[in-house]
Design a protein around this nucleic acid. Sequence first.
RNA 1: GGGCCCGUAGCAUAGCCCGGUGGUGCGCCCGGCUGAUAACCGGGAGGUCAUGUGUUCGAAUCACAUCGGGCCCA
Length: 1060
Amino acid sequence: MKEVAANFNAKVIECAVQEHWRTNDTYATVKQHRSTGKPFFFVDGPPYTTGTIHLGTAWNKILKDSILRYHRMNGRHVIDRAGYDMHGLPIEVKVEQALGFKSKKDIEKYGIQKFIEECREFAIRNKLMMDEQFINLGVWLDFPGAYKTVMPEYIEAAWWTLARVEDKGMLERGHRVVNWCPRCETAIADAEVEYADESDPSVFVKFPLKGRTNEFLVIWTTTPWTLPANVAVAIAKDFLYAKVLAKKDDKETLLWIAEPLVKAVLKKGRCKDFSIVETKKGAELIGWEYESPLASCVPLQREIAHKVLAADFVALENTGIVHIAPGHGWDDFVLGTKEGLAIVCPVDGAGKFKEEAGIFAGQYVRDSNENVLVALGDHLFAKETVTHRYGHCWRCKTPIIFRATSQWFLKISEMRELMLKEVEKVTWYPEWAGSARFYDWIKDARDWCISRQRYWGIPIPVWVCPKCDAYRVIATIAELEERSGKPLLDPHRPYVDEVTIPCTCGGTMKRVEDIFDVWFDSAVASWATIGFPGKTQDFENLWPADFITEGQDQTRGWFYSQLGASTIAFGKAPYKSVCMHGFALDAEGKKMSKSLGNVVTPEEVIAKVGVDVLRLYILSSSAPWDDLKFNWEGVGTINRAANILWNVYRFPVPYMILDKFEPANKAGLWDDAYIRANLSRMPDEDRFIISRINSVAATVDAATRECQLHRATRELINFILEDLSRWYVQLVRERMWIEGESESKHFAYETIYYVMRQLIGLLAPVCPHITEDIYQNLRCKNDPASVHLLDWNKGEPALVNAELEQAVGIVRSFDEACANARQTGKRKLRWPVAEVVVVTDSEPVKDAIGRRLNAVCKDRANAKTVRVVMGRWERIGWKAEPIMKALGKGFGKNSFAVKTLIETADGNLLKTEISAGRTVKLGNGNAVFDIGADHVTFAEQLPPEVFSSSMPDATVYVDVQLTPELEAEGYAREVIRRINEMRKQLNLAVEDFIVADVAVADERICALIQASWRTGIMEEVRARELSIHKTGAAVKTFEMVKDWDVEGVAMTIGISKAND
RNA sequence: GGGCCCGUAGCAUAGCCCGGUGGUGCGCCCGGCUGAUAACCGGGAGGUCAUGUGUUCGAAUCACAUCGGGCCCA
């Protein structure tokens, strides 16, 4: 055992521990040690490799690490491969920005090969940076062996999965409306759309009805640019529609609008005069034909037969008539498919109108809105601007458009039922994350568009024959090489694009150009991480995963993508349990964002308080699934708790070293045999703390098993502060100071050693560095080489003593009540008191304070005696207090006399009689009055210099009255304290001797101390010589002389170090 | 507009499932201890339990509505 640094310096400790782990390869040793245990298959949700980690990412890994460390200590062989998500649009966008690119054309010009190599380089660079940051957090995952979505084996897993999807008939090549980013020129998934406020025109447009003059349908839209693609309007069958005669500027028109909305619409069109000509049910409008108001300038529109249809999504909003452009809206598309409408889409991938859009050709759709309105001319009925939530590309923030294109889909909508069933089988922490949140999300799931028209991703392994249109899904690289007859250098674009396969029809199959949605990459992680399909053994033994944990945003992300892919490929969920965690917010509960300037980085926190405190803070301050409001004060509090842990650990070490203490062990291997064997002979405080640490262990174990790390950590912090520091250490101090051999001291050493060993074991998953540092200093020479090699303590019921814990609880309440009463009585703890009396009716209180822990009570209370009185303490008197209101009623003008009688009567006697239900006669000679229960109340009357305070089930009375003996002791204690203070100021060593002189101004006090305490003081301050005398006598020269005011008595104290 | 979660003293949290005096920590003020000491301990003040309505003898707790925050969706 070594001396321990006086100041707790987390950074120094953590650096040293990390270095120790590196040189001893501790992580590998721990894994090796557990390699024969029951497997615990964990899958790391792969963070995306852009830039540095933030507090939320840190939280995520800290949570994972703590839970996995717990399982390792419980003997599990943890599959702990880290993972990284390294493909996809976010990286492409970053690289594009770095290269100053504006569109896909720039990429093509630059060369796809060069471009993807840039992307690869970017991803790898970031991955290495993130490795380092995670390792600095103390996270023990397999980082060198991490799965990376860019590896050929990984890509193969995605390919294999798609082939499997195809086998199940769940892959569909379809011409559908998808979310489209016109900047990235690709389809994006629902999950990639971000909603933000956008300003758009809100317009009401008149569509002329065919064969009628001056009669129109009025529609509403916020996307005028979709009007060139209009093919129909939709109404609701059951709504009532009105034909309105509207007058404006002396012109009359006939307008069809849903009847309840007429007034509002005409107001927007500034028509003051109008009248309803006729009304019809929506059903009667079906089949009406109309013409496009853009027919003259958009050739495409002239070829379309526009008509009125019914649709159930039409709401009683705006005009009640909905513009339908099946090429540019999801509902429109579904309706169009059902009704056999033309799916027109005169917009290209870059969001520009094609030739068929006539005068708008070449214009960017959002820029063309104004031109469309101009072209509408008189058909524009009303126009205003709205700000509404609109979808944006998650990466480049460009407003998305809907566009009908040819894409590849996973038929999720057909899997919903099975997915919902599987969700129910998964254990969710918290329960509602699955049963409510995730369940609702899946209920509404649509088919998943998995194709992207981009470059940096897993190429979709589909080869199509241009001659016969047949396609083939390739499952593995080997299959591709075999069919193509050529080796594959790299399964990425553009290398894979060059590979062709002969078709059975004689044609040559070419790969479709698309790559996978990056969410599909991570969707296959649970089997890709164990090498499937390349290797199958681990898959058969391990899959599905025992546990995953990610943030609440992954409900629609990874929880979902994995479930979808897995349910199609294997018919079941890829995980058995899921813990959903929250987000890291700022102290006000707002999202941390660069623009708000409220971002706190993990580095900042680590720089101030170190990693373990950050870990303990994050895990203890909120439940995993609640959002974390980051708060520096809270961090400070946890740091203080860590500091107290350090002090508690440090406190006995010097004494143990001095005594060459070594805990009882067998051949250098420590266990708790000594504690078990000697427990019954140990002092109560030792048995208490041993019991407590085992109760705590049981609580911590139960909480951790349920992912309730906040409960586990709070329990541990509470134990350190309350039980260890504030209680046990206070009680055990004197035993540490015993010089020479002592069984009592030895018990204390063994106890505190045992408790520290158990405590650091329980704390090791959360604070891996501090506990390792402490363990390395405490371990016996043949003990396991790391705290992380220890077995978990679930709490040993045989060592738990509930009655004792309860008794100590009572004594601690007593302790607090004493302090309270002393404070009221203005008697410092240093000054002894003659007696403390506890009045109670409770047997447990009586037993704890009066018998079992009486010695502790006396010590804590600094009292000569502590005794318990059941029922009533004879020194407590009762004072009768008249109730004047009642006296006035009962005694009229004699009230005042009665009042005096009551006040001067013997309160005790009065109370006894009245409590027994009798009346008491009080008189002053001339008159006698009957006093009953109505007339008086009783107040407790304490003897002089007795002060009380209440505790649960009892009242504590402290008698602070001084006797000469008590006074002498009190002053003696004051002198001792001051001499010791001066010793410290002189920097004397604990074992140094001194000579001292005390001059006291008050003759009586001087005599008191002199008479009984001179020797006592000399012992306590290690004085060779001590003179106590009245002020004024000649004083020798001392190294230090100080004047003191001791409770109003002036003293001059001089001390010097004794020679020799 | 919809789903889920959260709202308790200046700050952070427990209690809510299963209704019966709202605990705790930090900070603040006062005090104690002085061989854990640039540490440690005690006491005190501080609460419309977001708001409103309902159920009930009784609501922080149950129900409904509103407001505010977060995540997700349309």
